[in-house]
């Protein structure tokens, strides 16, 4: 009698606890980082921009940063003519973005990609030294010289991800990957 009473209660409890148990740590090895440690290391800026730090910058401010940080030394005075990859389209009227070359502030599907790239990878040999304001400014400058945003637009933590890039969704998404599956069905025959 007592058992019968307990069972209807015990069953749902058991079912609820199973997935929790299955996801618990098996070995208990590894250290829990603090929220502060995670924030300090997390420099991956995704398309939603949720990881962006506070800050802001316009094309005019970015143009000054471009000169003062030596960007022009490798990328040319106006984003062309240097030894490093060009940053401004030589063919600005061509409606086909793909035909205009591999230019980061033009071909990147998201403005966050431009921000992420500059923040982690520039300037050469002094990576990681730019302040968020400088990165916002440089991003605005590069988007402006490619006609993506107006010169007076101020980019910040809130509006960067909303910038409409010229490529739109005209790029190939990767196929869903499954183990033991050909990379492209029917290739090459």
């Amino acid at each position: 009698m007592a058992l019968r009473k307990v069972l209807p209660i015990a069953f749902p409890l058991l079912l609820m606890s199973v997935p929790v148990l299955a996801q618990g740590p098996t070995y208990g090895i590894g250290r829990t980082p603090t929220a502060e440690e995670i924030r300090a290391r997390d420099i991956s800026i995704g398309p939603t921009g949720e990881e962006l730090p506070p800050g802001k910058g316009s094309a005019k401010e970015g143009a000054l940063v471009y000169r003062s940080k030596g960007c022009a030394g490798c990328h040319g005075v106006n984003g062309t003519g240097g030894a490093a990859p060009i940053l401004k389209s030589m063919d600005p009227t061509n409606p086909d973005v793909w035909a205009r070359g591999r230019i980061l502030p033009l071909r990147a599907p998201f403005a966050t990609t431009v921000w992420d790239y500059i923040n982690r990878g520039m300037p050469l040999n002094r990576e990681g030294t730019l302040t968020p304001d400088e990165v916002y400014g440089l991003t605005a400058y590069l988007l402006f010289i490619n006609g993506v945003i107006p010169e007076d637009q101020v980019l910040d933590q809130k509006n960067l991800a909303a910038v409409k890039m010229p490529l739109g969704d005209k790029y190939a998404a990767l196929p869903e990957w499954k183990p033991r599956t050909p990379r492209l069905k029917g290739y090459p025959y």
Partner: peptide, 26 residues
């Protein structure tokens, strides 16, 4: 989602088929 970070930009392809061939080695 696909995060489109540093190396991802270098992998950007226009064609679906090329993207598929640019990932797992044949």
């Amino acid at each position: 989602r696909y995060y489109m970070n540093y190396n991802d930009f270098g992998h950007l392809d226009q064609e679906q088929k090329v993207a598929a061939l640019d990932y797992q080695i044949g």
